[in-house]
Write a protein that binds this DNA or RNA. Sequence first.
RNA 1: AGGGGAGUAGCUCAAUUGGUAGAGCAACGGUCUCCAAAACCGUAGGUUGCGUGUUCGAUUCGCGUCUCCCCUG
Length: 308
Amino acid sequence: MKKENVLFVVGPTAAGKTEISIEIAKKLGGEIVCADSMQIYDELLIGTARPEEKNLQGVPHHLLGFLPPNADYNVAKYQKDALRAISEILSRGKLPIVVGGTGLYINALVYDIDFTKTAPDHGLRDALSQEYDEKGADALHDKLKALDAQSAARIHKNDKKRLIRRLEILLHHDDPGYAFRVPQDRFSLTFIGVSKRRDILYRDIEKRVDRMVERGLEAEARAVYEKYGTDISAFSAIGYKEFLPYFKGETDIDSVIQTIKRNTRRFAKRQLTWFRREEKIRWFFMDDPSSRRANLEAIFGYIQESMR
RNA sequence: AGGGGAGUAGCUCAAUUGGUAGAGCAACGGUCUCCAAAACCGUAGGUUGCGUGUUCGAUUCGCGUCUCCCCUG
């Protein structure tokens, strides 16, 4: 039986994924599934560059702004939600187009990862965290080495979060051998990478941040801050957390804007690093707005060829 | 013009009594399987403005020169 097609549109922030994915959806009869860890939250509109309703052009979008900012969310939940959205879209005979720049969320759909047998144990995590702080990084890292040398080699001792998570899994299942990065085989996947030459991407990031500020980013960040405080994962979004010192009167707005630009640039770089590893991605560079049409044609061509 | 101060990494600045240069930011590479716009690791970069003198040895001291800043005219 022929596997069903799922299209992925990935790439760094500010490269133009949103616009292109809508064009693809219109042309191929698709529906979009958000794979962006911050655009899933409601009330973060400007700063996450979430497409506005009026710009969706009738293309159905899923998992976009569907959670309150104080929701407790993670990859495991995302995987479940996204897979459900994908099945629903397929059942309507439409093409699912997963669009976003959150590599981990993408991987939860691309690789065969079962989160259900490794549910988080917060008590154990706290205990391990305390042990890490008291006995030092080496102590926990040695512990991991004894249980699973392979993971220990991959996880740096200072990477507290992963160290603890890995130990958590191992202490719950004494089987250290788990398959890492095994491709899923339910769907036939096609990957479009949308990017720009580095200097152009950086320039466009700065322009976009300036535009966000003009559109009222400060007020939006303040509203989220006053309503939910800082202790929610949504407030770790770039474009929000940077306002904290400003709200406390410790710095001026210009330095906030500079920091947002800097953090966005760093973020884009990390995204590029992440996706660089995926060899199946076919990259398209949107450096020049005047060649937009030609790029779209090339993308359509590639999709057609790939999904045959 | 005179007096004073400063020239060191792309930027802002360090460098104990002279022992051939460090940090933050920026840049670049990488990791990533339940907070991921998070968290973490790493790399590179400088004829210390230029010339000259003293010295075993000069970013450091002397002289000259160029540039910038401040003050006075």
